[in-house]
């Protein structure tokens, strides 16, 4: 398997920060999170290889670290990822119904991607928005105090 050419933005991210750390490896977790944005939305074996080379960390250890973190996708995802909170404070204020509505609107189940590749829907643990429950994140944006009525408007922002 070939490694791939790391995106310039990823290299710049590392170069700008490396002087603040005693080892290159320290930047592994934030670099993986950024890199998947520029390389197809998930941590592919090719990406693991390139990052391993770039940060001088053994490939298996990059894989080991990457497989631990829930924001690092193991497989291809849709253009937008909906992360709806299923934890306690959201549950108490209608979080489960919101997730059910999302499933209905998108015609998929939690864990699936719409056939047009637009959305991947997952349910996640508390996202520190319990004061605005039920809450969800789409890509990088929080949506709080969600209602069924607001869903169409919110989803329309993501094409």
């Amino acid at each position: 398997m070939e490694s791939l050419a790391l995106h310039e933005a990823v290299k710049k991210f590392v170069e700008e920060r490396i002087s603040k750390y005693p080892t290159k490896r320290s930047l592994l977790v934030p670099t993986l999170l950024l890199a998947q944005e520029y390389h197809g939305g998930y941590i592919s074996p090719e990406l693991v290889k390139s990052i391993a080379k770039y940060l001088e960390v053994p490939e298996q250890e990059v894989h080991s670290t990457a497989s631990f973190y829930s924001l690092l996708n193991k497989h291809k995802v849709g253009r937008h990822t909906i992360m709806a909170c299923h934890n306690v404070s959201c549950y108490l204020r209608g979080g489960d119904s919101l997730i059910k509505k999302l499933e209905e609107k998108l015609g998929i189940k939690v864990g699936q991607t719409t056939p047009d590749g637009r959305f991947t829907l997952i349910s996640v643990e508390c996202i520190a928005a319990c004061g605005g429950a039920p809450a969800m994140i789409i890509d990088k944006d929080y949506f709080e105090n969600m209602t069924e009525e607001k869903l169409d408007e919110v989803l329309a922002k993501f094409t």
Binding site: L71, K74, H86, D96, E103, V110, G111, I122, S123, V124
Partner: peptide
């Protein structure tokens, strides 16, 4: 009566 089934072993799940 569950309204949905949480899946963590799909796209984002930890395998272990």
């Amino acid at each position: 009566e569950r309204e949905f089934i949480p899946v963590r072993h799909g796209v984002n799940g930890r395998s272990g």
